[in-house]
Simulated assay, not measured.
Amino acid sequence: MAWLDLLGWRREASALYARVREELPRDPQAAHQLWQTGRNALFGHHPQSPLDAAARTAFTALPCWPYDPALAFSARVDTSGPQERLTVPSSTGQDMPLVRFGQVTLPVGTLDVYWIDVYGGGVFLPFRDATSGQQSYGGGRYLLDTAKSADLGSTAAGELRLDFNFAYHPSCFYDPRWSCPLARPQNVLGGPVRAGERAG
């Protein structure tokens, strides 16, 4: 049953991000509210919620900073540099194979972009910032994870939409039984990013 529950979670997450991508160009704040409402529903009621049964009973909403349009960007991935194959530890110590295949340069800093090098794969962009370990998870947050459908799409010019207001905590933040790849030192931003999900 757990495998079918996981399938249901992924379908619902995929459908949520599809609605968000449709709304985002028209009304970013409405898209952000849609995203929050959808994630709250999944966390509060879905059997594959990262929260355990006791935490789901007490759950009301995931804490988020207010939407800040100054932290919504789009950027082209620079793939001109060499690719780098990596094996990075997850939150539980398990190895995760990644390929660093490019970088994005944003007003808040430069971040490496990875391919999760397992079956199915996916583009992956984690980060840490000056809030990590205090106002957000010390292991970082995720800006893009296409393996989990967490993808805001691209602009007409082919740039990735990278809106920090949609940054979210990995499942291991809520329960250590989950295994999550963490942000590498290359993806640590110097300043605080007070957007997206935060610690309670």
Rank of each mutant, 00 (worst) to 15 (best):
D95M: 12
R194E: 13
A150N: 14
S91W: 05
V113L: 09
A75Y: 00
P25Y: 12
Q29V: 11
L182M: 10
G120Y: 01
H32R: 14
W9C: 07
V88W: 04
A70K: 15
R19V: 03
V77C: 00
A41S: 14
G153W: 00
G102N: 07
D129N: 05
S90R: 02
S80D: 15
L62Q: 10
D129G: 03
R26F: 11
P50E: 03
D129C: 06
G121T: 04
V188E: 09
L24C: 10
Q36W: 00
G196V: 06
R76F: 07
C180N: 09
A130G: 06
T79F: 09
Y174M: 12
P47Y: 06
Q94L: 02
Y137W: 15
R10A: 13
P66V: 06
P69H: 03
V88I: 14
Q103W: 13
G93T: 13
Y119I: 04
T37H: 06
D112W: 00
G109P: 01
V104H: 00
R39E: 13
E84A: 15
S80W: 14
Q103Y: 10
L42K: 04
G93S: 10
E197S: 08
D145V: 00
N40W: 02
C180P: 00
V113C: 03
P181K: 12
A30D: 03
S74P: 07
G38V: 06
E22K: 05
I116R: 10
F127E: 07
P47F: 07
P82L: 12
R128S: 03
G81P: 09
L71V: 13
